[in-house]
């Protein structure tokens, strides 16, 4: 061990320290039941979906991988935000409650190093869950003889991980504010409800009641990272957003070739801003 008590904590965070915290975080996650519950739930649901979604041999593999991907996208929309938000919400709050955070900070490491270590560790946890889910689903799909759409599948797996990272950031932001882990968990579940259900339902209701122009509908919906992920995945496996009616056609007409890029930027903004805010909060005045 190179790190000794007289190590001077500098303003410049060290990558090796961050990685060390990250690995510790990943290790403690892997030994927890929560982690295995999430991985098993995601992998299991993905496998069931593939079995159900794969077209029967009587119809032929014509709809193939795209169809499997479509079902997986709905699954990801529901389960990945829930997994990542709760993971993020518990990360700091729960460790604060058990005193693990104070123990961690008793080591000669800066708050910045501790924060990014926790973030990196948790994003590795999410990477395990998503790659395991998509990998297992992919193997099963191939074993059923469907082999088209490889690039699409890879892209959706990657986009799922991006979504997971964005949700992790939001979760950690909640965590830095929460006094207790139970409060953090409650807020995280509420945010999940808003992003996955209530937000869309609200836009739907408003649009139906007020004859909202499709442009407003599209951009309002786009503010939601879960929607940005869905549209990104949909452009990948459907080739366009035409299937989404007038608002989808509007999106294609307005953004054209920049559609994918715009969606990616929305997702990356949601990835960057909450986690940066959480870092500022943790570095500044968050209790240990």
């Amino acid at each position: 061990m190179t790190m000794t008590a007289d190590r001077v904590i500098t303003e410049r965070p060290e990558m090796t320290t961050i990685l060390r915290v990250a690995r510790k975080e990943l290790r403690s996650s892997v030994t927890s039941r929560w982690f295995w519950m999430w991985v098993l739930a995601f992998v299991g649901l993905a496998l069931i979906l593939v079995l159900v979604a794969l077209p029967s041999t009587r119809i032929g593999g014509q709809a193939g991988f795209g169809r499997t991907a479509a079902s997986l996208v709905t699954l990801v929309q529901i389960i990945v935000p829930l997994m990542a938000l709760t993971l993020g919400a518990l990360s700091i709050a729960a460790q604060r409650e058990t005193g693990a955070l104070r123990f961690l900070m008793s080591h000669p490491i800066s708050r910045t190093e501790a924060f990014w270590g926790l973030y990196l560790g948790n994003s590795a946890v999410l990477a395990v869950a998503t790659t395991a889910g998509f990998g297992a689903a992919g193997v099963l799909t191939i074993s059923r003889g469907v082999t088209d759409g490889t690039a699409t599948f890879a892209w959706i797996a990657f986009a799922s991980w991006l979504l997971a990272m964005a949700m992790l950031g939001i979760g950690m932001l909640i965590s830095t504010f929460a006094k207790r882990s139970s409060a953090a968990l409650g807020v995280a579940v509420f945010v999940w409800l808003i992003l996955v259900f209530i937000g869309d339902l609200g836009v739907m209701g408003t649009a139906a009641a007020t004859n909202m122009p499709v442009s407003v509908l599209f951009f309002t919906a786009l503010a939601n990272p879960v929607e940005a992920f869905r549209l990104l995945a949909l452009t990948a496996f459907a080739g366009s957003l035409d299937a989404l009616g007038p608002a989808g056609v509007y999106a294609v007409d307005t953004l054209g070739d920049n559609l994918d890029l715009s969606l990616l930027i929305v997702l990356l903004l949601w990835l960057a801003l909450p986690v940066l805010a959480a870092w500022q909060r943790f570095r500044g005045k968050a209790d240990l």
Binding site: Q77, D200, A207, L217, A221, L244
Partner: peptide
């Protein structure tokens, strides 16, 4: 225009 939300959890 609500087809936009087709196949979403909502």
């Amino acid at each position: 225009e609500l087809q936009f939300f087709d196949q979403t959890p909502a």
